[in-house]
């Protein structure tokens, strides 16, 4: 499933990025890498951003970008 579909409060492992090298680099810059475990904090309504916690940091990720991040619930 994608990060958008993951329920709030659930933890998951990042398995794949459906995007170009640019997107992958931007995500990696902020510590979002394949294999990382994340916790979803919230979804904003009307295709708003998704908020996740990764390590000690919270990140806000735009809806489209979040939809291109594949995760596997743990």
């Amino acid at each position: 499933m994608t990060l958008v579909e993951l329920g709030s409060g659930k933890r998951a492992r990042v398995t794949a990025f459906n995007g170009g090298p640019n997107m992958i680099k931007r995500l990696a810059d902020l510590g979002l890498l394949k294999g990382k475990t994340i916790e979803k904090i919230s979804n904003n309504p009307f295709r708003g951003p998704v908020v996740v916690r990764i390590d000690q940091v919270e990140l806000a990720i735009g809806y489209r970008m979040a939809g291109r991040i594949t995760v596997e619930p743990v």
Binding site: V51, L59, Y63
Partner: peptide
């Protein structure tokens, strides 16, 4: 418009 992507 690009999407938001930011550290909180």
């Amino acid at each position: 418009s690009p999407e938001i992507f930011l550290e909180i």
